[in-house]
Structures are given as structure tokens and as C-alpha cells.
């Protein structure tokens, strides 16, 4: 099979990607072209292969078939253009390093072999932490950070890389409201700089609000395109199947419980 060619203006092009774990295929025949400068949400039910898609693009797991092209070239030649924010649970947060050390890891690639981290890299790391509003935690050991703060540290590490295309695996999972706002602000800043972000997302309620492009995934790409066109009830039903009805109901209830402005000041009311 010949590798298909894509113009260097396309940040990410996926052709015929199939991934299998053991004997079970997890992603079938994914074809996807992501336009530049978009905030892209990857949405789908549990086990739909959202994280797998990202990991296969980054060659963290083997592809059974298919090609991934980044700005017109295979990934291996374009590593410096790609930033990655893994899932928070993927590392051991008891590791004896500080927040600053973790962020400085984003500079290692540019630093190259054998050269130690110097003042310059530390300043870059500090700056990135500052952009996420956690500069004051720079010297804290990472296990002493809250979940949201840990997530911000991971984002700062990706930021330090100064990439063009970012892959983020569930950055909004189990973070506090302040962190969620900080991440959204950061995403918009990145977009304004013409960068492209692919974000695995699990909260349907905020998809339309956060992303201007969306990929609906369930082992295959159900639909992909601008959010206002694609993020419709029919398409979601195709993606989630029968489970959507339940989700909707739960979402409604949550919204009733948490609508701002209708709160009379009695904590016991909304039961």
C-alpha cells in the first residue's frame, strides 16, 4: 500500500487506521482530516477507542494498518510539531520530582542528549506554569498537588514544547471548576495562535461550548466536522446507541440541580 500524500497545511490526516488489542479490533478503518487552527473534541462512549486513536497516532501502540500524516509528513519526522498531554492516571504521582521538573521535561527534546536542564529551561517551565496560574506551586512535590493542579502541570509541560498540534487525553476528567476554566482559556489562546488541539472529551454537555470541530467516534468515525453541523441528536444517537437516552435524562437532572440564578439561598432546597 502506498502512503497517501497530504498537503503540509493539514495538521493531521489519518487514512485507513485499524488498531487491534489482542484479537479484538478497537478501531476500524478510521479516515480523518483535521483542519488547521481548530479545537477538536473527540467524543464517544466508553470503549469507543478515543484514547486508542490518540495513542495510535503517536505510535504508542502498534497499528494493524493505516497511515498517520502530520503536516504532510509521517509522525516520526514531525515529533517537534506535536505536543502530548497523557491521561493523568498514566503516571505515578508519588515520583520524587517537583512540578517544575515535570514541566521542564517538555524541553528535553530540544535540549538533546546528555545536556542537563539549565536556567533557561527552568525559566521556560516557570513561564508555562504561570500561564496556567500555578507558578506558585513550582517547587512543590507532585504528590502534594490536587488533581486539577496535576492536570495543569501536564498541560504546562505540553505548552513548553511549543508545538503546532496538541493531543490531549481527557484533560477535563475529574478536575475542579477553576482548572476547567483555565484549560478552556488556554485552548482558546492556542487556537488564536493558529495551533490545532485534539481533545478527548467525555462530557457531552460542554462539547458545543468548548469545541468548534468534533469527531464522533465509536470504533469507527461516525461523523466528523464543524460542531454546529455535526453535533446533532441524530448523530449522537448513531454514536451512543441506546445509551444516549439515559445520558440525556441524567444531564437534564444535573442541569435542574445546578442552574445558576435560581438559587434561593437554602442549601437543602434542591433535594
Amino acid at each position: 500500500m502506498n502512503a497517501p500524500t497530504h498537503p503540509p497545511s493539514v495538521p493531521l490526516a489519518i487514512d485507513d487506521l485499524t488498531v487491534a488489542y489482542h484479537r479484538k479490533p478497537v478501531l476500524w478503518d478510521v479516515d480523518l482530516d483535521i483542519p488547521e487552527g481548530k479545537l477538536v473534541g473527540i467524543v464517544g462512549p466508553n470503549g469507543a477507542g478515543k484514547s486508542t486513536l490518540i495513542k495510535a497516532c503517536l505510535e504508542l501502540i502498534p497499528k494493524a494498518s493505516g497511515h498517520v500524516t502530520i503536516y504532510g509528513q509521517p509522525y516520526r519526522k514531525q515529533r517537534s510539531l506535536v505536543g502530548y498531554v497523557p491521561q493523568r492516571e498514566s503516571v505515578d504521582w508519588d515520583f520524587p520530582v517537583s512540578a517544575l521538573d515535570v514541566v521542564a521535561m517538555g524541553t528535553y527534546r530540544k535540549l538533546g542528549w546528555l545536556r542537563p536542564v539549565a536556567k533557561e529551561q527552568k525559566e521556560l517551565a516557570c513561564h508555562a506554569l504561570d500561564r496556567l496560574g500555578v507558578a506558585h506551586l513550582a517547587n512543590r512535590q507532585i504528590s502534594q498537588l490536587s488533581g486539577g493542579q496535576q492536570q495543569r502541570v501536564f498541560l504546562a509541560r505540553a505548552l513548553v514544547q511549543d508545538a503546532q498540534l496538541y493531543f490531549m487525553d481527557e484533560p477535563f476528567a475529574a478536575v475542579d471548576a477553576a482548572t476547567e476554566r483555565a484549560i478552556v482559556t488556554l485552548l482558546h489562546e492556542l487556537k488564536d495562535q493558529g495551533k490545532t488541539c485534539l481533545v478527548v472529551h467525555h462530557d457531552l454537555a460542554t462539547v458545543a461550548q468548548y469545541f468548534d470541530w468534533v469527531v464522533l467516534l465509536n470504533m469507527r468515525v461516525v461523523k466528523a466536522g464543524p460542531t454546529e453541523e455535526i453535533f446533532t441528536k441524530e448523530n449522537l444517537k448513531d454514536t451512543y446507541g441506546g445509551r444516549l437516552a439515559l445520558l440525556e435524562e441524567a444531564g437534564q437532572r444535573l442541569r435542574y440541580a445546578g442552574i445558576p440564578g435560581s438559587y434561593p439561598g437554602n442549601p437543602g432546597r434542591s433535594q
Binding site: T18, A20, P25, W28, A64, S65, R220
Partner: peptide, 15 residues
């Protein structure tokens, strides 16, 4: 063998 078979199948049909 299984891996070979998996690739030989047409993914769009079995998928």
C-alpha cells in the same frame, strides 16, 4: 496466523 487473517479480511465488511 490470526494477525495475518485479521489483516487479510476486509475491515469494512467485518466491521
Amino acid at each position: 496466523f490470526h494477525r495475518k487473517n485479521l489483516l487479510a479480511e476486509d475491515p469494512t465488511v467485518t466491521g
